[in-house]
């Protein structure tokens, strides 16, 4: 089995697998997935970036309006979305995203476990929740799971 090196800045990850049965070298090219992190707290943005940047392509933004613009431009596999933000909150952003993309995966990031938010989010369709302050390993686990 060939194991490819993880190239930090590269956009591609090469994984080669030799399946003995077929004696075929299979080269699976996996695109590095692109994640958008939306949070008005710089500390949180930075922390998430550092946690995830080895495996994924990370883009950060601090407000919902810019986030929607970026999403419309396309290419994102996952949005990690904070709820409480000034001007436009996460649920509102989610609503607008769902207006043009019902399949896009979204993980809600929040400090507040509020029933109302959870209900609304469920209605709009979310792939998971991360509660602040979060555990680094939990973050990697849930993101990996969602992005399989």
């Amino acid at each position: 089995m060939l194991k490819a090196n993880l190239m930090k800045e590269a956009h591609f990850q090469f994984i080669c697998r030799w399946i003995k049965r077929y004696k075929i070298k299979r080269i699976i090219i996996v695109m590095r997935k692109k994640i958008l992190i939306v949070d008005d707290e710089p500390g949180c943005r930075e922390a998430l970036k550092i946690i995830l940047k080895n495996k994924y392509n990370i883009v950060v933004t601090d407000n919902g309006i810019d986030a929607i613009e970026l999403i419309k431009q396309g290419g994102f596999h996952l949005i990690i979305l904070d709820i409480i933000m000034p001007k436009i909150n996460g649920i509102e952003v989610l609503k607008r995203i769902r207006e043009f993309d019902t399949q896009l995966k979204v993980i809600i990031l929040t400090a507040i476990k509020n029933k109302e938010f959870v209900e609304e989010a469920e209605k709009l369709g979310v792939s998971g929740y991360i509660f602040k302050p979060f555990d680094v390993t939990k973050v990697t686990t849930i993101v990996d799971k969602v992005l399989i």
């Binding site: 500390g43 949180c44 550092i50 409480i84 400090a111 507040i112 602040k132 302050p133 555990d135 680094v136």
Partner: peptide, 16 residues
């Protein structure tokens, strides 16, 4: 909200 927001980066950076 305020407290958890401040604790989040602290926790993350300590774990990393």
């Amino acid at each position: 909200h305020e407290i958890k927001n401040s604790l989040t980066p602290i926790k993350s950076f300590v774990q990393l």
